[in-house]
Design a protein around this nucleic acid. Structure first.
Length: 287
DNA sequence: AAGAGGCCCTGATAGC
DNA sequence: TGCTATCAGGGCCTCT
């Protein structure tokens, strides 16, 4: 579900609220996430002091004062909710990320801080929590991931070299985290529309000019999505209970059979399946 | 090495 | 009302 911008919004919201706080207790209600949460997990996190919350690609990272970490991935349907204790000593939901009201089902992980509870909800359980002993182990977890679009390593030389002899379509590469990390299914379609590149175009056929466009529009789309608070295509809410707004900017995603929004283009938005995922594009201006 | 496909899982929705 | 099929912001693993 969440791509880099949505995870960034969660990170920012968490940063404002849980940094410099100590974990008092961890309660696991269902250990069977993507990776089984080991039984020692609760004890490992207990009394850890959260120095900082950071993010790489679509991963959230809790940084503890003893230089260990907790790595969190939201998978397709994971959401994080923050619940604050009010003056009446009740826990009231201030609504993090996806919902102003805590869902009744699938609240698998609860992390208690002083006057605060972090709840992890995930119906499909494709997300995970992992305790990471040290920096080396964390680096290892990210070893297989390519640069984020924002990194200087994501440059023209890197792209053109990577695409040499690659017959696979460009859409698949935008989704491939080994090539570039952080882009998901929504933003891949949106980026390619802005680049005027057909999602099925074979990577090795891309020109330098197109490579440059991919680099710049990847940054532009993700940055704008972050600025707009992410995309709410279901019940996404941020910490203030507000929707993200980038879904209003979608040019092609879920716009099947609509007119191409590009000025003077008479094309229609088509939906096809690429890399097993729905893909939207204009049948005329994306070549 | 590169690419295709299966699989993990629940819930919403469409069609009969 | 209920059944079945299809589809969802992801990513790992295996096979050719």
């Amino acid at each position: 579900m969440p791509e880099l911008p949505e995870v960034e919004i969660v990170k920012q919201s968490l940063s404002q609220n849980i940094q410099q706080k100590k974990i008092q207790k961890v309660i696991i209600k269902n250990r069977n996430l993507r990776f089984k949460i080991p039984s020692k997990f609760e004890q490992l996190l207990k009394n850890k002091f959260i120095v900082k919350v950071s993010r790489f690609s679509k991963y959230l990272i809790f940084n503890f004062s003893d230089r260990s970490f907790c790595l969190v991935h939201l998978g397709m349907s994971g959401t994080i909710h923050l619940i604050k204790k009010n003056n009446l000593n009740n826990f009231t939901n201030t609504s993090f990320y996806n919902s102003s009201n805590l869902p009744k089902k699938h609240n698998h992980v609860e992390i208690r801080l002083k006057n605060l509870k972090i709840i992890y909800n995930d119906p499909r359980r494709f997300g995970f929590f992992r305790y990471i002993k040290n920096e080396q182990e964390l680096k290892k977890k990210f070893e297989h991931l390519g640069p984020e679009p924002f990194f200087k390593e994501f440059n023209l030389k890197y792209l053109m070299n990577y695409f040499k002899n690659k017959k696979k379509d460009i859409k698949s590469f935008l989704l491939d985290q080994k090539f570039v990390s952080g882009i998901g299914n929504i933003y891949a379609s949106e980026i390619l529309f802005l680049c005027k590149i057909n999602p099925k175009k074979e990577a090795f056929k891309l020109t330098k000019k197109e490579g440059k466009k991919i680099i710049s529009f990847s940054k532009i789309v993700l940055n704008k999505a972050i600025k707009k608070g992410g995309s709410s295509i279901r019940d996404f809410k941020n910490i203030l209970g507000e929707n993200g707004n980038y879904q209003k900017e979608f040019k092609v995603y879920q716009k099947e059979s609509g007119n191409c929004p590009r000025n003077k283009c008479k094309g229609k938005i088509k939906k096809i399946v690429v890399a097993k995922r729905s893909t939207f594009y204009c049948n005329i201006c994306q070549k």
